[in-house]
């Protein structure tokens, strides 16, 4: 009689909870220890360092209070980096979502060699950013890049395009490569959800006379809403804090044309040797992300 057995067991489990609480704490102890050392301590430390002016090589510094923040908020570079960050995030996110949904719908249908098609589409996501950037820099190469040759051959441009060295090309290229690298995340999420939409919903809509477009807007999109809310939140955070792709593809250039906040933090700390200012910029960036997150979550709940 498994149910009675389980019921008595769960009773016993509950009564022993107190005694086992200690064992539970023991099992979580390594996690808590590591969290405190590599996450909580650095986080607190970053906030603290942001109140000092520190020269990186000597690590000598003095207390400056909120001066770092005042200096940041008064500097054009900070606002430019924030603007770049928003442009990059909004641009690449929009492309990822639109393209991700379209490709997911396509892969959801009956396609010859569908498994292979899915693998080919999803693979860029699992690739190292280093590899993705190397490949794209080779494609973008101004002299021997295949992209320029294609455009010249098709007669779309008369001269090779400088994809990464001038504005606004650099930002557009960046947004585009970001979309290529990260849209498979949207595809995976949407595909998983599409498979769970019951066919009856589509049948009912068809009986009501809904065409293909109406079925998409009235059935598919509302069903995708919840998963898209989560996807947009995660991808916004990840795109906002992206470092590798931007640093490797344009290095923030030309000049600071594509420099986002994470790149600014890195430059302040390790090129300009201003640890304090860099920490302040990092903390400010985190605050902006938190603000955005709470705004988004409160809107999404409605």
């Amino acid at each position: 009689m498994p149910t009675i057995r389980a019921a008595s067991a769960s009773l016993r489990l509950r009564s022993l909870d107190a005694r086992y609480g200690l064992l539970g704490a023991l099992l979580i102890a390594p996690t808590v220890l590591v969290f405190c050392t590599v996450i909580v301590y650095p986080l607190v430390s970053a906030i603290y360092l942001g109140l000092f002016s520190i020269y990186t090589p000597t690590m000598e510094g003095e207390w400056v209070g909120l001066d770092n923040y005042r200096r940041l908020l008064a500097s054009g570079e900070f606002w430019r980096s924030l603007a770049n960050n928003l442009i990059w995030t909004a641009g690449t996110l929009t492309l990822q979502i639109v393209f991700g949904i379209l490709v997911a719908l396509m892969l959801h249908r009956n396609l010859a060699f569908r498994a292979l098609a899915r693998s080919l589409v999803l693979f860029p996501y699992f690739l190292s950013t280093v590899v993705a950037v190397l490949v794209w820099r080779w494609l973008f190469n101004d002299l021997y890049g295949v992209l320029n040759h294609l455009l010249l051959w098709a007669g779309i441009v008369d001269l090779p395009v400088d994809w990464l060295g001038s504005m606004p090309n650099a930002m557009i290229s960046l947004i585009f490569v970001g979309a290529w690298k990260y849209f498979p995340f949207v595809v995976i999420a949407v595909l998983a959800r599409l498979q769970a939409i019951p066919d009856e919903l589509y049948e009912a809509a068809s009986i009501d006379g809904a065409g293909a477009w109406a079925r998409f807007t009235d059935v598919t999109l509302p069903q995708l809403r919840d998963v898209l809310i989560v996807v947009v939140l995660l991808r916004t955070i990840w795109d906002f804090k992206e470092f590798d792709l931007i640093f490797l593809l344009t290095g923030g250039g030309p000049i600071i044309g594509t420099q986002t906040l994470p790149l600014m933090v890195y430059k302040e700390a390790f090129a300009l040797n201003q640890m304090g200012g860099a920490s302040a910029a990092a903390v400010l960036m985190m605050l902006i992300m938190l603000l955005f997150m709470s705004l988004y979550l409160s809107r999404a709940r409605d």
Binding site: V38, A46, L234, F243, M286
Partner: peptide, 23 residues
């Protein structure tokens, strides 16, 4: 603790890098 895990899952590494570098 479970919520803290979710929060750190989203934490930018540029915030942690300077103290970690010093550590």
């Amino acid at each position: 603790l479970a919520r803290l895990v979710l929060f750190t899952y989203l934490l930018p590494s540029v915030v942690l890098i300077i103290p970690l570098y010093l550590l």
